[in-house]
């Protein structure tokens, strides 16, 4: 039986989530609530557990203690439960992870056809709509390797959107891109934010955080150190480690 999705619950809730890789503790009692329509940016030094945290939300990584709830449904080891939650949670990766053996259009239609059992024509129509939104419709019949990094990442965003998720996770979406391509990807993400998509975004793009985030989360050594609205976060960070991190970022 499918667990009942609770429409009034927060979109995502992490309660004291901890995770270990052998003896190394990657997440220490991480708690975070993200409401519907909220845009949250997670930043922090590398190895701070920020990617691990969002990868736990759709169970690409398994947490060992604490609870993760997506729309009030607790994430358990049960396959049905995991697959149900993954349909509601879209994800965009640092390395794009497009399927290299499929065309752009096929990349977008695969999951809707297989997972949502959508007829082919309908899936293709949906795919073209999202490709148009990310301004890349003319590339539909090419293969991923024929596209630039920025184009590939926009396709990856469109692919996740084709499942019509309730929330989008971004795992350093611009970190693997050449500088001149970062803007085209951020523009698409800003548009998405303006449409009130619930977003959790791990990124070092502080300009993006300033303009679209409702809250900025700073993580260090597997812990949530500080959570604040961007104006407050950048102007008067409370924690010493946050100040140090922002100082290093702004030096460049």
């Amino acid at each position: 039986m499918d667990p009942q999705i609770n429409k009034s619950a927060p979109m995502i809730e992490l309660r004291n989530v901890s995770k270990w890789y052998d003896s190394f503790q990657a997440l220490k009692d991480v708690s975070l609530t993200v409401n519907k329509g909220e845009r949250v940016v997670i930043c922090g030094p590398s190895g701070s557990g920020k990617s691990t945290a969002i990868r736990c939300i759709n169970r690409l990584e398994q947490h060992q203690s604490g609870e993760i709830l997506v729309e009030g449904v607790e994430l358990t080891a049960d396959f049905k439960n995991i697959e149900l939650i993954r349909r509601e949670v879209g994800m965009v990766f640092q390395q794009f992870n497009l399927f290299p053996h499929l065309t752009i259009l096929q990349n977008l239609t695969l999951a809707p056809r297989r997972v949502r059992k959508m007829p082919r024509a309908q899936a293709e129509e949906l795919a073209m709509r999202y490709l148009t939104r990310v301004r890349i419709a003319e590339q539909a019949h090419k293969y991923p390797a024929q596209l630039s990094g920025g184009q590939q990442q926009r396709v990856a965003i469109a692919r996740a959107l084709c499942m019509e998720p309730q929330v989008m996770l971004f795992d350093e979406p611009t970190s693997a891109l050449d500088p001149e391509m970062i803007k085209e990807v951020l523009d698409v993400m800003v548009e998405l934010a303006e449409e009130h998509m619930t977003m959790i975004c791990v990124t070092h793009e502080m300009g993006f955080a300033r303009t679209v985030a409702d809250r900025v989360v700073f993580m260090d050594h597997g812990q949530v150190v500080e959570v604040a609205p961007p104006a407050e976060f950048f102007a008067s960070p409370k924690n010493e480690r946050t100040r140090l991190f922002l100082g290093q970022l702004l030096k460049h």
């Binding site: 149900l84 992870n97 399927f99 695969l110």
Partner: peptide, 22 residues
């Protein structure tokens, strides 16, 4: 690459679908 498993899993595909299609 592991990213292929991650991406197909994040789209809600089952193990058999991941294997067969990706």
């Amino acid at each position: 690459p592991r990213g292929q498993w991650d991406a197909s899993a994040s789209l809600g595909m089952t193990f058999v679908q991941q294997m067969r299609d990706v």
